[in-house]
Simulated scan of single mutants.
Amino acid sequence: MLRLLWAASVHTRYFLRRCMPTNILLDAIRTRHGLRWGIPAMLLAAPYLLAASICTNLIADGGPGWLNLLVLLFCWNSLKILIMGWGYPQVSDGWIGSGGPCQGCRVLGFELDWGLVADR
């Protein structure tokens, strides 16, 4: 039974990574050449938030309850895009591009919680 659940979760994850539009976008941003598209990709969160707002208004006007799932899905996708678009290129640009922490962290003397930036 455990093996069946494990196999089902692996296949579900593979399907979601391969076929869902936001996951395809996030995989493209995570590449070395996709880092420059992180900030412009954040603009795609606006249509998701608009769709969530429309569904919320439909629910408030007596629409079907299953629209709540769409609201949750739209909000989740917009948060994924916003967090990945804003945070990932800034963090990984310093690590991938220069082979170490970003210059701003070193100059300002920030000490990260996990100890990645050493005091100089």
Rank of each mutant, 00 (worst) to 15 (best):
G62W: 02
Y48Q: 12
G34F: 00
P21F: 07
R36P: 02
D27A: 06
M20D: 15
A46K: 02
I39C: 04
H33T: 15
M42T: 14
D61N: 13
M20I: 11
L58P: 04
L79I: 12
L69K: 09
W66P: 13
R32E: 08
A45R: 12
S53L: 13
R36S: 07
A51M: 05
P40N: 01
N68I: 11
L58Q: 13
T22G: 02
T22Q: 13
L73I: 13
C55K: 14
M20P: 02
R36L: 05
I39N: 08
L58D: 13
C19E: 15
P47N: 07
G62F: 01
L58F: 05
L44T: 14
M20Y: 12
A41C: 05
V71I: 15
L58S: 10
M20Q: 14
A41G: 05
C55W: 02
P47C: 04
G65Q: 10
C55F: 09
N23I: 01
R18S: 07
I29M: 00
L49S: 01
I29C: 00
G65K: 07
K80A: 11
N77M: 05
I24E: 03
A41N: 03
W66G: 12
L35M: 06
G63K: 10
L82N: 05
L44E: 02
R30S: 02
L73A: 15
W66K: 12
P21Y: 09
G63A: 10
L69F: 11
A28K: 01
A45Y: 05
L82I: 15
W66M: 15
D27S: 03
A46C: 02
G62R: 10
L44Q: 06
L70R: 08
M20A: 13
L82H: 04
P40V: 01
L25P: 04
L82M: 11
V71S: 10
R30D: 00
A46L: 12
R32N: 06
T56L: 12
P47H: 04
P64E: 14
I39H: 08
S53P: 03
R30C: 01
L73F: 13
H33V: 14
L26H: 01
A60Q: 07
C19R: 15
C19Y: 15
Y48S: 10
L26V: 14
W66S: 15
H33R: 14
I29D: 00
N23D: 08
N23T: 07
H33P: 03
P40K: 02
K80H: 09
G62D: 08
A60F: 01
A28D: 02
L67G: 00
M20T: 08
Y48L: 10
G63F: 05
W37H: 11
A51C: 05
G34N: 01
A46Q: 08
P64Q: 12
A46I: 14
T22P: 11
L43N: 09
L69H: 10
L70S: 12
A51I: 09
